[in-house]
């Protein structure tokens, strides 16, 4: 059996090589590959956010598409109505989504469990209907980014020159790199958040709400924080997604299937409540998608069946199964008493 130090080094090496390869994809890979991986990375970002929300804060939301849609529409509004750079629109999208999270939490936090899930879904539908009324952005039929917007986006001309590719390939490369950075940042932020005082409080609430209150933890406040922060991450991701798609409609931007159902599937399959879970889940999902995409409806049936099997027989998902069998824990959240501190990044149980 390998010792802990060796495993740490191997995993570290794999991680660094993997991330380096991912960064190199627009240089060494095809454009189709860049677009494909962009889709994977954005799903990963959404899954990481949903995992924080449902897996750690116990807030099983089925209304995350509200934040994707609002982020996308805010970005479009910035570009079309205010003439700003789309990249500024991404940030604005994040903040607008976070602002939406405040009234949404106000209503949804009165509900618990399944009612919370339904409540968030209903709110998301209402938000979709509201945005379908926004005539300046095409109302129900939606609108496209003005021609040339992505070509002149901040950074695109430089990438075009550097890589010697077309403008649209350069814009794909830029959105891809942004998605990669955002995925890594979300992973890092999640890790440090969960290892902080607030993260420990969240885990305490998850284990025992009443006892947590009795030692001074305020569950509502902590959950509200997570709800707002994940709304920000989800909104940013939504805006980024629709820069690449370049066309927005209420149906596409607020799609419960694309931005929440698949995301829940990925998180549950990979391992809800673990940080590596969404990564494992998204890889699995991508492989399945590639293998089954020619079979139409069968693909969704297989997807659903696998989801049910994992939920019944491996409740902590594929990563949880692997971790239990091998004893390898990655990105562990454990905090050790001062004099007995091993490396927190990876250790054997």
């Amino acid at each position: 059996m390998l010792d802990q130090k060796t495993i740490n080094r191997i995993l570290m090496a794999f991680g660094i090589v993997g991330v380096a390869l991912l960064f190199a994809v627009p240089i060494i890979g095809s454009r189709a590959m860049v677009q494909d991986l962009f889709g994977v990375l954005t799903l990963l970002i959404l899954a990481q956010n949903w995992n924080l929300l449902a897996g750690f804060a116990g807030l099983v939301s089925v209304g995350q598409q509200a934040f994707v849609g609002v982020g996308a529409y805010a970005m479009f509004a910035c570009v079309i109505l205010l003439g700003l750079d789309p990249l500024v629109g991404i940030l604005v999208g994040g903040f607008v989504a976070m602002a939406l999270a405040v009234p949404m939490a106000f209503f949804a936090f009165r509900l618990a469990g399944a009612y919370f899930a339904i409540g968030t879904w209903v709110v998301a539908e209402i938000v979709r209907l509201c945005f379908a009324q926004w005539k300046a952005l095409g109302g129900g039929t939606g609108t496209s980014l003005p021609k040339g917007t992505t070509k002149n986006m901040f950074g695109v001309p430089e990438i075009k020159e550097l890589l010697g590719v077309s403008s649209s390939a350069a814009s794909d490369a830029l959105t891809y790199w942004l998605a990669l950075v955002l995925a890594l940042a979300t992973l890092g932020a999640g890790y440090f958040f969960l290892r902080s005082r607030m993260g420990l409080g969240l885990q305490a609430i998850r284990d025992n709400d009443e006892a947590a209150r009795s030692v001074g933890v305020n569950p509502t406040r902590l959950k509200a924080w997570v709800f707002m922060l994940t709304a920000f991450g989800t909104g940013i991701c939504g805006a980024l997604l629709f820069i690449q798609i370049t066309r927005v409609t209420p149906e596409a931007a607020f799609s419960v299937l694309d931005w929440t159902a698949f995301v829940i599937f990925i998180t549950v399959i990979g391992g809800i409540g673990t940080l590596p879970g969404p990564i494992v889940g998204v890889v699995f999902f991508y492989i399945l998608q590639r293998a089954l995409s020619d079979y139409g409806t069968v693909y969704l049936i297989v997807l659903g069946s696998i989801g049910i099997i994992v939920m019944l027989f491996a409740r902590r998902g594929l990563w949880g199964l692997f971790s239990d069998k091998t004893g390898i824990e990655l990105l562990s959240l454990r905090q050790y008493a001062p004099e007995t501190k091993p490396n927190p990044l990876a250790q054997i149980k």
Partner: peptide, 26 residues
């Protein structure tokens, strides 16, 4: 500060982490 009649630990946290929750929040 209170203890419960039926112990209610944060069962997925270690003893040290249980105390850290209380020390930091309470």
């Amino acid at each position: 500060g209170r203890s419960f009649q039926i112990p209610q630990p944060f069962s997925h946290l270690s003893v040290f982490e249980n105390l850290m929750v209380a020390a930091q929040f309470g």
